[in-house]
Nucleic acid binder design. Sequence first.
DNA 1: ACAAAATCTGGAACCGGTTCCACAACGTGT
DNA 2: ACACGTTGTGGAACCGGTTCCAGATTTTGT
Lengths: 342, 342
Amino acid sequence: MSAIGDVARLAGVSKSTASRALSGRGYVSDATRERVVQAAADLGFVVSSAAASLVTGQTRNVGVVIPFINRWFFAEVLDGLESALISSGYYLTLYRLSEDAEQRRRIFDYFLVRKRVDAVIAVGIELTAHEVGQLRSLGKPIVGLGGPTDGIPTINIDDVETTRLATELLINLGHRNIMHLGGDLQEQMDFRVHDQRLTGFRRAMDDAGLSGRDDFLAVPFSIQGGYAGALQVLADPRRCPTAIVAGCDEVAVGVIIAARQLGINIPSQLSVVGIDGHTLAPMFELTTFEQFPARQGSRSVEIILEQLESNDSETPHASKPREMIPVNLVVRSSTSAPPRDS
Amino acid sequence: MSAIGDVARLAGVSKSTASRALSGRGYVSDATRERVVQAAADLGFVVSSAAASLVTGQTRNVGVVIPFINRWFFAEVLDGLESALISSGYYLTLYRLSEDAEQRRRIFDYFLVRKRVDAVIAVGIELTAHEVGQLRSLGKPIVGLGGPTDGIPTINIDDVETTRLATELLINLGHRNIMHLGGDLQEQMDFRVHDQRLTGFRRAMDDAGLSGRDDFLAVPFSIQGGYAGALQVLADPRRCPTAIVAGCDEVAVGVIIAARQLGINIPSQLSVVGIDGHTLAPMFELTTFEQFPARQGSRSVEIILEQLESNDSETPHASKPREMIPVNLVVRSSTSAPPRDS
DNA sequence: ACAAAATCTGGAACCGGTTCCACAACGTGT
DNA sequence: ACACGTTGTGGAACCGGTTCCAGATTTTGT
C-alpha cells in the first residue's frame, strides 16, 4: 500500500514535487514528471481519495436521490446520470428514497450531509424548503429532475402542457368520450407529476367543453396498473370511452394489452395516447410524447458540473431556475378518429 | 463548517474525548458524552468522512459494478443492494460497466482501486483473474452475483439446472417440438447466463432424445426481443413449435404478446415457460421459475459485510465459494399438454 | 488497607495527500 | 550588467479526524 512518499523517494524528488507531477498542478519539468509517473507505475501507486478530499474539500462524488429504480423513467434517468458523471470523472452515490419519512430524514440529516458528496441531484422528488436549506448552507449545488422544487435549478418536461396536448390531439380527432388513466394523487411521494398531468387533461377537456364527467381513474404507474384499470373501465358500459389519455407509456401499454384481450380494436374502437417514449412504444404502435429521460439525466449533470466548476467564485445558484425539456410527438397507429356510430 | 475541535471547545473537553464521545469508541463518562453530543447538535457538526476514512482506512462505501440498470433483473438486484446497504449504514457507489473494454479497464484501474470503496459487488459480470487479483491485493472483499467468477464468493441460481427443469416440465407435458428463445451468446458481455441456460435446455432435450434440430433462436433479453423472435418462429411453418422455453420472463412475455397477435392460443396451441418471476408474470399467466433478485442482492450484502467485519483477522475469503439460490416454480396457465393433432 | 484492575481524560502522533512559501536557476528586456 | 518574470524544486504547515500512550481517578478484590 504505497504512499506518495514512497513514489517520491523512488523518483528521487520531494513529496510536493511528486504530488505536482501526478496531479498536474503547478510547475514540474518534463523530465522529473516522467520519472515520477514511472515510479508511481512501478509501485502500483494510487492516490487516496480520502486524503485528497480532506485537503481539497472536494470528493468528486455526486449524490443521486431517487424514489424508484425499477421503473422505466427512473432507470433511464439513472443510466443517463451515471454515464455523464463517469465520463466527467465523477462518482455516483445512490440513495433510493422510500416513502418512509423517517428514513428520508435520516438520508438527509445523516448521509448526504456528511461531507461525502459535492452535489446532489434529486430525481422525481420535491425537496422541502428545509432540505434545500440544509444542502445549500453546506454550499452543495442541487439540481432537481422531474420534481418541481422551488428555488433550485430544475430539469423537466412541461407535464401540464404535454398532457393537455395529448388530450387535445384526441379531441381534434373527434373524440368526445375521453378518459384519463393517471397516477394516484395520494401515492405520488412528493412527485407532483400525477397532479400536473391530471391538470393538463382537465384543462384540455374544459377548453373543449367536455368536462364534469367521471373521466379519471387512478392507477399505479405500471403496465399492470394500466391493464387492471383498463379492464375495469373498458368493460363497464357506463364508462367505455372511445379514447384514453394514459398517464405514462407503461399505463398505455397495459391499456392496449387489456383492449386486445377484450377484443377491442385499436385504434378503430379505442384510441390510446401515452407520455414517455418508452422502449415498448414502437412495438405497441403507441402514439406518444417522447421525453428522453437519459438526456434529461445528462443535462442535469451538465448543470451540476457547471456549478461545481464555477463554485470558486461562490456565486449563488444564479442559473435559470427551471429548464423545460421539449417533448417530441410520435404519431403511431394507436390513435385515429372515433368510431362513427358512437 | 465546524470541526470536531470546535465541538470539543464548546463542550470543554479535548479533541480526543470529543471523538470518543461521538464515535462511541473507548471510555467516556455519561455526563461528558451528553455535553459533547449537545455541543455537536448546537453547532450542527457532522464528521468529515474523508478525515475519518483517512485514518481508519475504511470508507463505509461499497462499489457495485453492474452492466445494465434498465432491465428488470438488474434493477431488482440494485434495489435489493441499495436497501440492504443503506440499512447497514453503508453507501453504494454505482458503476455501470459498458461493453467498451477500454472503459471497463478504466473503471477497474482508476476508479475502483482508488481507496474509494471498502468492497466490490459485481453483478452479472465475470471478472477476469487479473481484476480479481487487483482487488484482492488491495484487501477488498468481492462478491459476485449472477456471474460465475472463480475464486470469489458468488450468489446465483443454478442456470443450467433451472433451464433443464423448465424444459423437462414441457417434455413431461408431452411436448416434442420445443424451442429455446435465449440470449445471444456473443452479446453476453462476460455474463455467462446465456450459455448456461442454453446448456440446460440442450441437456433436457438430449436426455429426452429430442436434440439435433433447429431449436434455438438468439434474441435480445427484452420484451421486444421475445416478441420479434416469436413472430419469426411462430409464423414459420418449418419451425412452429408447440412449446417455447424463454431465456427469461421478458422474452416469455414478448412471446405471449406475439402469439396473441398471431391468434395462437396459449396454452392450447402453444405453451410458454420463463425464468425470473418477473413483475409481469402474473398478468400474463406465465409459468415461471422465480429467482427473487432483490433477495439475492441483500444476501450479497450480508456476505460482503460478514467479510468486512471479520476482516480484522485478515482471514482469506474462506467462505463457501458459491451459493446457489433455490428457485421457486410457479405454474400458471401458460403451460399445458400440446394439441393432440400435432 | 493496599494492590490491581477498570474507567476517564488530555496530549501528541499520525493517516496521506495538497498547497503555501522560500529559494534557486534560468531566460529576457533594457 | 542588472532588475525582473518565469520555471522548477524542497520544506513545512495543514486538512479533520482517530488512536496510542501516559497519567489521574475511581472501583474492585482480598
